Amino acid sequence: MRNKTIEVLGKAISEGKGLQINLDIAKLHTRTKIEVPVIIERAKESGPTILITGGIHGDEINGVEIVRQLVAKGYHKPQKGMVICIPVVNIFGFLNQTRQFPDGRDLNRVFPGSKRGSLASIFAYHLMKEIVPLADYCLDFHTGGADRFNAPQIRINEGDEESLELAKSFGTSFIMQSKRREKSYRDSAIKLGKKVLLFEGGKSLDIDKTITKVGITGALNLMHHLGIRDFSKELASKAKVSEPIIVASSKWIRANHSGMFRSNAILGRFYKKGDKIGSISDPFGFFEKDVKAPVKGYVFCINKAPIVNKGDAVIHMSVEK
């Protein structure tokens, strides 16, 4: 029997209705209530529910921008099922433009949380208890941390064929089959039986138009594929992505010297072992050392930091067998 009314955070959402509610389980030390807007649109016709999130890390602004545009352009209004959007999950970090929660913890390392743990853990607990169980599919938008700029990619649980097909429908050039990180949002949602796609693109504290465009188009592709809404008209003018590159293994290239780093690598390009992909020099003009590809593969992340220390990760490559 169809459920005519769904209750979210104590609010009833009837078929064909939309609602914005606030997840407000925490306060600042000034006793100021911090509210996390949860934007819900439900169709008259039954269908799957997708939860779309951004800003689990407060400084990953590009993910916030993607979800914001989905709402601003009305793409979150379904013809079947329900769409739940949380543009900024970690509103605390977003306010301060930092990755962490005010308690210094990384929200994406404390799931599924606990009722009486740290501030981040309490928040994770309520998200997993009140919101995630409603979803069938989760689409989570991230960027590279610090100065690491990621090529647009979807990360999925390795060995999950259904998620692989969903990732292909999204339409990024790269699909990363990565192991689940314990206590992450993705790991906890998968344990609840949800299908989770994690998008990575761009870097923190930055909004890149190309990354935003890929993220929005991918979300429309996915919702179209799931039958949530017909986006044929919106997608008609979009360029089709060729067969995606599936990355099962990857390697970080680390700086052999401290100094000024210049990358010659181009995101998405294939390099052979021994190809020059960057250089590191001192600031005085006495030495300059090449950074060479230690394996053959595709470059899908570049550290944009101009200054690096020995051992810093500078370029991330796939490992092609």
Rank of each mutant, 00 (worst) to 15 (best):
I156T: 05
R181W: 11
H142E: 15
L139N: 08
I61H: 13
C138T: 09
F123S: 04
H126M: 10
Y125W: 15
N108G: 09
I61E: 14
E130P: 08
R42N: 10
V89P: 14
P152N: 05
G171P: 00
S118N: 00
N157A: 12
H126C: 11
D147Q: 14
L127A: 06
S46C: 10
M82N: 03
E182Y: 15
G144Q: 09
S114W: 09
A120C: 03
K168T: 07
I61D: 12
I52E: 01
F123Q: 04
Q79I: 09
L95F: 15
T49Y: 04
A151G: 13
D136C: 03
D103S: 10
N150E: 07
E45D: 12
M82V: 04
D59R: 11
K80F: 00
C138Q: 08
R42I: 05
R105A: 15
G117K: 02
G74H: 09
R181H: 14
P102T: 05
D136T: 02
G104Y: 05
F149A: 06
S118I: 03
R155F: 05
R181L: 15
P102L: 06
G104A: 05
I156Q: 05
M128A: 09
P102E: 07
G93Y: 05
I84M: 01
F170G: 01
A120G: 04
A120K: 08
P48D: 02
Q153W: 11
G93Q: 14
K73G: 07
A43R: 00
I84F: 06
D106L: 08
I66M: 10
F141N: 06
N108Q: 02
M128Q: 07
H126I: 13
G117V: 13
N108F: 01
S118T: 11
F170P: 02
F170D: 01
A43G: 02
D106A: 10
I84H: 03
V89L: 15
A167C: 08
K77H: 02
C138A: 10
F111E: 14
V88W: 04
A146M: 15
